[in-house]
Every structure is written in C-alpha cells, then in structure tokens.
C-alpha cells in the first residue's frame, strides 16, 4: 500500500514534468510540422539559467526570469534559424534543431563545465510537507505539481478563451486563411515557438532542482519526451497528457517493484533460471527501456498514437 501510494505520487509527478515538456513540443509540432529536437535542450537551458540567475536574485525571481530569457532565445532561434531552413523541408528542419541541440549542449559545457552544478530548491520548499507511514514527502514535489497544473490551466485558458488563442488555434489548421485575414502568421509561429521553449524552461527550472542539473540532462530526458509525443499521437495535447502520465507511472512503478524478470515470467508459467542473463535482470533495470518498448508497440499496433488524428 505504502509503495503504491508513493509510487503513484512520484509517477504522476514525473508524468507532469514530462507533460510540461511534451505540451510545448506538441504545440510547436502541430503548428509548424517540425519536431523540435532541441526542446529538451531548452529545458536544460532553463535549469542552468535559473541556477545562474538564482545565485544573485534568489530562486523566485529566477523562476520568473529564466523562462522569459529562454523564450527569447527560442524566438531568436525561430526567427533567424528555423524560418530560413523551412523552405528546405522537414528533414532540414529536423537537422537544424539537431544541430542546435548539439550546440546548446557544448555551450553549456563551455560555460558551466561537464560536472553537475549545485542547483537545489530554496530552503522553504525543502521541508517535508506531510508524513505518510513514517515517510516524509518533500514540499518541493507538491509545489512542482501545483506549478505544472497552474501552467496547464493558464495554457488552456489562453488557447480557448482569448483572442490570441483563437488566432493560434486557427493558424494550427489554416495558416493561409489566417494570413489572408490580415494576421501576421510568421509572428504567431515565432510566438508559439517562444512560449513552447519558455514552458520547457519552466520545467527545467523545477526539474533541474528536483533531479540533477548537468550537461547530460537534455539527452536523458529528450528521447523520452519524443516517445511521449509519438505515443500520445503527434499533435494531440490530450494524447500527450495521457502518454506523459502513463509513462511516468510505468517508469516509477518499474523502479519501485522489486522483482526480477524471472519472477514475473514465472507468474505466467514461463520458467527462466535465476542464473541466466535474462533471469537476473530486475524490473528496475528494465525501467529505462520501457518507454521505448512502448513506442515500438504503439507504432506496430496503433501507428497514429493513442489519441492522434492522423498518421504522420
């Protein structure tokens, strides 16, 4: 029971972190048709910026400033990079964002070094919030959930209830018509790209403090975010949400359940020796593979993703 409650909490938490990243990615994808390979790099930039700014202004100001700065960087990348590459097609765009991801990682290494930086949540949020079965639950985790949920509500309200959101939604499906109506579609694109990057950075401000802030953080999370987007269905916000939570829960439970593959297989009547390679592997070891396994299965059996409307 204890394990289940804590794993669920942590799984939802991890899932929300994933969704903070995948929502921006999905929004950018459905609008411009480009899967931003550098999305997780903006997440990393958010963490590093917050660390650097926080050293002088404190955590709270950094939490506001870092995403804004990263959104600015994102706007520049879109305006002077992506927009020019666009005419060469999707493969060129993907290559460009791949290059940007590579470049950001190297620049981060240049400025902050290869080792993790000591970036941690403020003292207020490090105290335990409540105690369950003798285990304390840190308040920073709950804070993170609140921030994530607030971000989605804001995003949703912006998209559904404001005029800007209306234009963005229209530009998603009918960019030419929106352009003919006199709206500046390239500016809308740039804005969406910047907001998406800013959201990734906000995830980084929190994720960096929760997990670890090092130059490899983009590479460890990036592929999983892509899995979320593909599994959820390319361009579907709802699908991204479901897939994020699903993958968050799967990974957390796999780590929490202390069982080896041979135990698991034995339940299904398959006997594998405990001494063999296959039998020795524990579920916790398999955990990092599970999202990719899920990806392959979804692609074979449901190529458009859980809630995707189209094939590609």
């Amino acid at each position: 029971m204890e394990t289940i409650v804590f794993s669920t909490l942590n799984g939802v938490l991890y899932g929300l972190l994933l969704f903070m990243l995948s929502s921006g990615l999905t929004l950018i994808f459905s609008m411009m048709g480009v899967l931003n390979f550098a999305h997780a790099s903006f997440y990393m930039l958010g963490a590093y910026f917050a660390y650097a700014i926080g050293a002088t202004t404190g955590f709270w100001a950094a939490m506001l400033l870092a995403p804004i700065l990263v959104a600015g960087v994102g706007a520049l990348v879109e305006r002077y990079g992506l927009r020019n590459v666009h005419r060469h097609g999707h493969v060129a765009e993907l290559l460009f964002t791949f290059g940007i991801a590579f470049l950001i990682e190297e620049i981060v290494k240049l400025i902050w070094g290869r080792n993790p930086v000591p970036y941690s949540p403020p003292a207020v949020l490090q105290q335990p919030l409540f105690t369950l079965w003798g285990t304390q639950y840190p308040s920073f985790r709950v804070f993170m959930m609140i921030v994530a949920v607030l971000m989605f509500i804001t995003l949703w309200l912006m998209l559904k209830k404001t005029r800007i959101g209306l234009i963005v939604q229209a530009a998603l499906t009918h960019p030419h018509m929106v352009g003919h109506l006199g709206h500046n579609v390239p500016l809308v694109f740039m804005g969406v790209f910047a907001v998406g990057c800013g959201m990734a950075a906000l995830a980084g401000v929190i994720g960096g403090a929760l997990l670890v802030t090092d130059p490899a953080m983009a590479l460890t999370l990036g592929p999983i975010v892509f899995v979320v987007v593909v599994v959820g269905g390319m361009g579907s916000l709802g699908g991204a949400f479901v897939a994020s939570i699903l993958i968050g829960l799967i990974q957390t439970f796999a780590v929490a359940v202390d069982a080896s593959l041979s135990d698991l297989l034995a339940r299904f009547g398959v006997m594998v020796s405990n001494r063999s390679d296959l039998g020795r592997i524990t579920l916790a070891q398999v955990a990092p593979m599970l999202p990719f396994l899920l990806l392959v299965l979804v692609l074979i059996f449901r190529p458009r993703g859980l809630m995707g409307a189209r094939e590609s």
Partner: peptide, 30 residues
C-alpha cells in the same frame, strides 16, 4: 516496422530504437 513511416516519424522511431538497443546492450552482459 520502422520503414512503414517516413520523414519525421521515421526519424523518431530510429531514435527510440537506438535508445532501446543501447540500453539493452548494457543489460545483456553475456
């Protein structure tokens, strides 16, 4: 299964497969 798609989905699948096989590589020691 990966060649059923082209363009961006193909690229994403190849990335996922790459991660999957690399992770499996560290797991199967023999």
């Amino acid at each position: 299964f990966s060649c059923r798609r082209s363009g961006t989905p193909f690229a994403m699948i190849s990335l996922g497969i790459g991660e999957l096989v690399a992770a499996a590589g560290f797991m199967f020691v023999s």
